[in-house]
Design a protein around this nucleic acid. Structure first.
Lengths: 244, 244
DNA sequence: TGCTCAATGTGAGCAGTGCTCTCGGTTCAG
DNA sequence: CTGAACCGAGAGCACTGCTCACATTGAGCA
């Protein structure tokens, strides 16, 4: 494995290598979208690119590494979808509730459009697979986007009072630092309560995507909005639902 | 495929068949617990039983069917763990909050003890796999156990008032019937709000099991309790946490 | 009791997988 | 210009799910 961590490829060989690596990941991405994570085949990727299967191993160490690349891509895409939706809401002058609803809907839309990618990151992990450190950055992007809305809402006094949790926070100090410290008003347990929003968002989408809501709820889109509204109410945030 | 749907096996051959079928599923269960759903191999099961791999197909139509059996088993085991915990809490004279906490903890304990089985049912579905109708009964067992606690809490006046959702309920009529109809007090949107408890329970456990809470929360057991408390508060239910 | 046919077990085989290794050919750097 | 690094191809290994022809066994019937 040659290290071409040097930012810009210089020689023709390095350029070809970069291009071929991209072609491989692109083909893998297409195949992931089509057949899902567990059926993603390195040999099929090689076939699609017209090369021998063994040649792919010059560029990708293993199938797991290829999946890791796609995992990182997916986390990034989800995080970007959330950030973009929030940015649009901010530009439209939305309050915290509207921003939050916009983020939730954007993430759900992304998931519905990319079910296999969603399953890759939020479904069961591949056995024996240990997430490398490279994934934690992109993985936290969605959480940070959500935290931004909550922090803004708290700072802007947009959160109604709710009953507090007992005892000090259990949220990791590194996380607290990433979101700008522990808030004092209206609830110092806000980080922990906000985690429920995260769990509810990802959980509701996964439930819908994985079929657990089949025959349980009639209108998935509206039901999703209302689940998010219920979850948001637990941090004192009110969402502007259509029916309201 | 012979149909021996007739309840009791009569002949020696039918007895042997029933026993071998059980041996196969047992071996598959062991292997599932060891290597996870995606690595479950029909050939390895056959090896463990000392028979030719092709012989297994006399008893199980395909690997997918074997997985379906395990899925049903798992749903049942989770539902039973929840029901048993609730029964114990009731026997101990617990109120709705304590019952609910007991159920949550029991399900989490079961999941921690059987991570691969949990991933099989609540992780990403295997591609191209369509859940047969046989799974919906066992699958709803956990939800019904949870509903029992909520319904009892509502009937016993143990739910505090919370802000209501707009518009009528979206919960499937069949589900409403299964839990004994739509309640009128204190919130007629109780079924929908309760769904958040379900999503939060399964979501929090899956997050922990799949590694998404790594470096996010410090004490998983306590953090779980508190997430459940936050979720429960959205239906006006207060959980008896240790720190309170 | 003997016969017949279905149920059962076996091993070979097909098509596919991830991955390794060797063998040439190409390209880059000193 | 030469040696070394890189690259693609193909064969091959061990594994998978699944099928099929064949032999065996057993259960019910005459």
């Amino acid at each position: 494995m040659p290290d071409l961590d040097d930012s810009a490829p210089r020689t023709a060989r390095q350029i070809a290598r970069a291009e071929l690596t991209k072609a491989i990941t692109d083909a893998a991405r297409r195949q992931l979208a089509e057949v899902g994570p567990s059926a993603l085949s390195l040999r099929a990727v090689a076939r699609e690119l017209g090369m021998a299967s063994s040649a792919v191993y010059r560029y990708v160490a293993s199938r797991d590494e290829l999946l890791t690349i796609l995992i990182i891509d997916t986390y990034d895409a989800i995080g970007e979808a959330a950030e973009a939706a929030d940015d649009r809401a901010i530009a439209a002058g939305a309050d915290a509730g509207a921003r939050w609803l916009a983020v939730c809907r954007a993430v759900r839309s992304w998931a519905l459009a990319h079910p296999n990618e969603w399953a890759l990151v939020y479904g069961s992990p591949v056995p024996g697979y240990q997430a490398p450190q490279d994934t934690v950055g992109p993985a936290s992007r969605l959480g940070l986007a959500m935290a931004r809305v909550v922090v803004d809402a708290a700072a802007g006094g947009e959160l109604a009072a709710v009953a507090s949790l007992p005892a000090p926070t259990l949220v990791d100090p590194g996380v607290l630092q990433a979101i700008g410290g522990l808030p004092d008003a209206p609830h110092e347990d806000l980080p922990e309560r906000s985690m429920l929003l995260w769990i509810a968002l990802v959980g509701a989408i996964s439930f819908e995507l994985f079929g657990h809501l089949h025959n349980v709820i009639t209108d998935h889109a509206v039901g999703f909005d209302r689940q998010m509204a219920v979850a948001a109410s637990s941090i004192g945030l009110t969402l502007p639902l259509d029916g309201a």
